[in-house]
């Protein structure tokens, strides 16, 4: 009678309670980076916390288009519109043997010509350690600006 709840708890620990079954907390930024010729790079308020992740790039102006904390459910895709042309999907695939989180980042580009289906501008599978960060650079935007996506595991 005492053992039944304990065994149930143990089974929950072994199945639902295992770390790789739990949602993965992440935070992401979509930054529009441009080169203005300014002497010192400028970051808006949301981009300042990640300036060390951006200042090695060839741009000097960083404006945050989207900044959000998400909890990624296992094997489910979380979608977000970054601009009117780019959408992003994040899918958490669990932990590897060393505890790194496998996250698939898919950025879709909506064609300028209406009627054509969106196409994958990039799809990448990242292995992120605890507090690990990654970025996707080079997504062309208007006026020679680029979209930089920064993904940080919480």
């Amino acid at each position: 009678m005492v053992g039944a709840p304990a065994i149930l708890l143990a089974l929950l620990l072994l199945t639902g309670g295992a770390p790789d079954k739990q949602p993965l907390p992440v935070r992401y930024w979509a930054i529009e980076a441009s080169a203005t010729g300014a002497e010192a790079p400028s970051f808006d308020a949301d981009a300042k916390p990640i300036r060390t992740l951006l200042e090695d790039l060839r741009f000097d102006n960083f404006i945050t288009l989207k900044h959000k904390a998400e909890s990624l459910a296992l094997h489910q895709e979380t979608k977000a519109a970054l601009t009117d042309r780019y959408t992003m999907g994040l899918r958490y695939g669990g932990l590897d043997a060393t505890g790194r989180a496998r996250v698939v980042v898919t950025v879709m580009l909506v064609p300028e010509q209406s009627g054509d289906p969106p196409r994958k501008a990039v799809e990448t599978t990242l292995l992120l350690g605890p507090r690990g960060t990654a970025r996707v650079c080079g997504l062309r935007s208007k006026d020679k600006a680029e979209i930089i996506i920064v993904l940080a595991r919480q």
Partner: peptide
């Protein structure tokens, strides 16, 4: 725990 890694990356464009 190992460092971050890019396992794969590709484009359709």
């Amino acid at each position: 725990v190992r460092a971050n890694e890019v396992e794969s990356a590709f484009t359709e464009l």
